[in-house]
Amino acid sequence: MITRILFLALFALAATMTIPDAFAPGKDVDVSVLSTAQADRLFTEFKSHTEIPFNYPPDGCYARATAMSKIAEEEKIEMGKVWATGYLRVKTKSKYTPTIEWGYHVAPVVYVSDGGKPKLMVFDPSLFDKPVTVDEWTAKMNVDGNPKPHLDKIYYGARYQFGPLDTEPKKYSWNKEDIETSKEVMEEYTETEKKLEALGEGFNGGGSFFGSGSSGSSSGQTGQGVR
């Protein structure tokens, strides 16, 4: 794991830009601007945290996004969050849950600049091996099938937000209950990761999992769960 001292040196002077805050219409959220190299290092840092169950994508995006945002904050990086809502279908890197359907998905964002105009980039190690643009992120969740997937809305909020827009008010700081829930969810799904891995080749991961909310679980080849 990259040490905190190195990260503080890398990010102490990070600039900020803004994203619109859907939880406070007319207001904006400050988000850090990183170089491409800094963003890549941050992505690698996230992946090194084995307590975050990136290999269990059916559920827990809200917990993973919160955990990553808090890690970044400790390194003086201000992340925002992006939500996509609709009937979303994605092919994942997981051999156990190769196709998943969600009602919404959320991940943290920062601006990244390679010397030109900064681009808003999404950090989602459950789906990608590097930071990607919002367009690349949403395109990933548009895998054809029956019923046909559709993207209803994309919106942004502060790192403190936990659930979707229709489930909670504007938050100005970390909520203790949200942090505790994130920890519990990640512990549960880390154990699920281990159990699935133990099944090895005996587990048939060819089905589709469905998620439609902000907490819950998936079960069976066509089991129902909530995102």
Rank of each mutant, 00 (worst) to 15 (best):
G80C: 01
W137Q: 04
E168G: 02
S214Q: 11
D178E: 08
E168W: 03
K76H: 11
H105V: 10
T181P: 12
K194L: 13
D129T: 09
Q38L: 02
A15R: 13
P125G: 12
S212G: 11
G211T: 01
F11L: 07
S113I: 04
A15H: 13
L165S: 06
M1D: 15
S69W: 04
G115D: 07
D114E: 06
P149R: 01
Y160R: 03
Y104L: 14
P169M: 05
G220W: 01
W137D: 06
K195V: 13
H150E: 11
I52H: 00
T192A: 12
R89K: 05
P147T: 00
V132W: 04
R41W: 10
P147M: 00
S32R: 00
V185P: 06
T3Y: 07
M79R: 03
D144L: 15
S218G: 13
F23M: 06
T190C: 07
E101I: 07
L151D: 03
N146K: 14
Y155W: 08
F43R: 04
P53V: 02
D40P: 09
M186R: 04
S94N: 03
V110A: 11
S215P: 11
F128E: 02
V109F: 09
T3L: 11
V31R: 01
G205N: 06
I71M: 08
Y104K: 11
D59P: 05
K140Y: 03
F128K: 01
R64Y: 02
S208N: 11
E101S: 09
G213A: 12
L88P: 00
F203N: 07
K195T: 12
R159S: 15
I71F: 07
Q221A: 14
E73M: 11
G115Y: 06
K130T: 06
E180L: 11
E193D: 13
D59M: 12
K81F: 06
E187D: 13
I2G: 09
L120F: 04
T92C: 03
S219A: 11
T85V: 15
R4N: 15
V109L: 13
Q38D: 05
K76W: 14
A65D: 01
M121G: 03
M79Y: 02
D114I: 04
F23N: 01
G225T: 00
P164R: 07
V122K: 01
E177H: 14
S212P: 09
C61M: 06
D40H: 15
Y172E: 14
I77P: 00
F54K: 00
G223H: 00
E136G: 08
P98D: 04
F43W: 08
W137N: 06
G157K: 05
A139D: 09
K76A: 14
G205W: 09
S113V: 03
T36R: 10
K153D: 12
A12P: 15
T99E: 07
S208R: 15
L10A: 12
